[in-house]
Design a protein around this nucleic acid. Structure first.
Lengths: 74, 74
DNA sequence: TTTAGCCACGGACTATAGTCTGAAATTATT
DNA sequence: AATAATTTCAGACTATAGTCCGTGGCTAAA
């Protein structure tokens, strides 16, 4: 559940910014294919990875999490 | 860095609530020793685990993350 | 001095985060 | 239609999240 929602949020934020998975991966210092896995909900990030991604997207980590919360059943 | 800060924040929130690692573990459905590892900065949670812990502490996951952000160098 | 609760720590383990390489499929661009 | 750019998928791998079972140390209460 959380994993899928996180992936969806990530994809939205990335495409909004008009950057490719590969570029994002480069900014985060993560693997290209791993970003793909995340977006498809096949992997979940650790908190460190979450911070890396948020920084690369120029968003506060807590706001990234807030986006996930928002789409979850109470 | 993040890992240590998360551990510190977790310990503060737990002790504030006056519950033992074992009780928290039970509420989160995680292992007793794993909570200890987290607090000592020897493990870092995945996002799902982060949500579990936040729920057990009766705090919003994004607020838990905000506590970590707050203690990090800009 | 014993008992009980809490925590640190170790070791050995299973599950999964995260990497790497490359090829096939899909989606723009021209 | 052809080409380029982007994403998906597969497989095999290393690193680490998370479990389980116990032991020993510490502090506080009986």
């Amino acid at each position: 559940m959380i994993v899928e929602v996180f992936g969806k949020v990530l994809r939205e934020l990335r495409t909004e910014r008009g950057i490719s998975q590969e570029k994002l991966a480069e900014y985060c210092d993560l693997d290209r294919t791993y970003i793909s896995l995340l977006e498809r909900g096949q992997r979940q990030p650790t908190i460190s990875t979450l911070f890396k991604i948020a920084n690369a997207l120029r968003i506060k980590p807590s706001d990234l999490v807030k986006n996930v919360e928002r789409e979850l059943p109470a």
